[in-house]
Simulated assay, not measured.
Amino acid sequence: MDTSTSSTIAAILGEPLPVELMNTVRGGRGEVRDALDGDVAVHAWLNAMAERILAESGAQTIRFPLEDARIVAGDLRALRDALRCLASEVTEDPRPPTSGTAHAQAVATINTLARIRAELVWPVDGEPTRTVTARGSQARLTVGLIARQAVDFFGGQGRHQLRACLASHCVLYFVKEHPRREWCTPKCGNRARVKRHYDRQSPAGS
């Protein structure tokens, strides 16, 4: 079992779950780092997202044992690469690609992994709720939930609001919910403004 830890921590921006998964790579000066590069890193990301998964799946409790994270790690990375492939196309992303996945393969991967079933839970003496189920562990449910949300996201109007953050060295995506938003985080916005100022002050061609 791979128990290596990752020095890269994924950005968690409060974006839709498919976009959060896209953002499990981080940019750097001349390199792209994978925040899901080992079983422990996958386990840590699943636990970081546990409250979101609990709320959006309708589950009563959520638990991600390390062994379950190991089992789904490959699928989670494949789903991430598929999402980034389609995100790059949708946004006409000018940045170098971080995914070697082709369009047809990306679509097939999402469809294959989007195997969850919605169920109505309605106790006689309680309020109705919606929950989703999948074969296997809650880690497997998480992969299916994100893939199903990706189907809705790319197949609906949400994809038109997806943006690539074009700040220097950034490789993240975000959903442009506010007309004035240009960057994934204020930090990237500040960095971009500093670069613009520097470029204006620098002699042309220097």
Rank of each mutant, 00 (worst) to 15 (best):
R26Y: 00
R26C: 06
R26K: 05
G27K: 04
G27N: 04
R29Q: 09
G30Q: 04
G30T: 05
V32S: 03
R33F: 05
D34W: 03
D34Y: 01
D34F: 01
L36I: 11
D37K: 03
D37M: 03
D37R: 07
D37T: 02
G38M: 00
D39S: 09
V42C: 12
H43A: 07
W45I: 03
N47M: 07
N47W: 12
N47K: 13
N47T: 14
A48K: 09
A50Q: 14
E51W: 02
R52S: 14
A55L: 10
A55F: 03
A55I: 03
E56R: 08
E56H: 07
S57P: 05
S57M: 04
G58L: 03
A59Q: 12
T61R: 04
R63W: 01
R63A: 09
F64P: 00
P65T: 03
L66T: 00
E67A: 09
D68P: 01
A69D: 04
A69M: 04
R70S: 11
V72T: 07
G74A: 11
D75K: 11
D75H: 10
L76F: 05
R77M: 02
R77F: 02
R77T: 10
A78D: 15
A78F: 00
A78S: 15
R80A: 07
A82L: 02
C85K: 14
C85M: 14
C85L: 08
L86T: 12
S88G: 15
E89F: 10
V90F: 09
V90K: 11
T91F: 09
T91M: 09
E92I: 02
P94H: 06
R95Q: 12
P96S: 07
P97T: 14
P97I: 02
P97S: 14
P97C: 04
T98W: 08
S99K: 08
T101A: 10
T101R: 12
A102Q: 14
H103F: 14
A104R: 14
Q105S: 12
